[in-house]
Amino acid sequence: MADEPKAPPSGGPSEPPAKSPEAPEGAAPPAKPAGKPPAPAGKPPAPAPKPAVKPEPWSSPLLDELQKRFPEAISDPLIFRKQPSIVVAKESLLGVCEFLKSDRGGSYTLLTDETAVDYPKREKRFDVIYHLYSFQRNDRLRLKVLVGEGEKVPSVVGVWLTADWLEREVFDMFGVQYEGHPNLKRILLPDDWTGHPLRKDYDILRQDDAWVQANLNIKSGQ
C-alpha cells in the first residue's frame, strides 16, 4: 500500500519546464520521488529545501479586537497567501466562535469546513481546524485548536449547524472527542471499526489483515 520509493534513481537533469505544446509527453514533470526519502511522518514542518514564501505574522483590526476580548486565548496569528490563521485556546473556543459569528466580530456566518491534522510527535497532537467565511467581509479565517490525545474539544454545533457531520467525521477519522455534540458517532466508517484511520500512526493494513485472519485463516492478504 504505502509506496515508499525504494531507491533513488539517477537524478535527471533538472531543466526548466517544457513549454512546447506539441510534445505532451515531455510537458509534465515526471513524478519523481525526492532526492531523499520523505520526511518521517510526524515531524512537523521540516525545513523547506528551497527558499519559499513563509507564513508571516498577521495583523488586522479584527485580530486586535479578538486579542482585546480574549487575551490569553489567541496566539500565533499568521498569514500565508493572504490566508490568515489564528490558534485559539480550547477553553475559549466557543466564546471566540460566537464572537466571530456576531456582527461585531465580522459575521463569519458560514462554517466552510472543519477538520483536523495529526502531528503525533507533538505534545498536543491534533490541530482541529475551522475554516470560516464571512459574507459581509468576503473573507476567510482559519482557526486552529490544539488538542492532545484524550482531550475534549467543545463542539461548535450550537454555533454553526454545519459542524454536526463535520465533527462526526473528525471524530471518525481522528478520534477527537467533542463535548456537547448531539450525536457523536462514526459517520463514514462502520460503527464497529477499530482505530481512526487518518491518524499518522494508523496501520492501513490492520483492518485488512484482521479480516483476512478471521475469515480466511491466513496471515495477510497483501
Partner: peptide
C-alpha cells in the same frame, strides 16, 4: 528499463 513508469504509477 529506467523504472520511471513504475515510480510514477500511483497504484504501483
Amino acid at each position: 528499463a529506467c523504472n520511471l513508469c513504475s515510480l510514477a504509477c500511483p497504484e504501483n
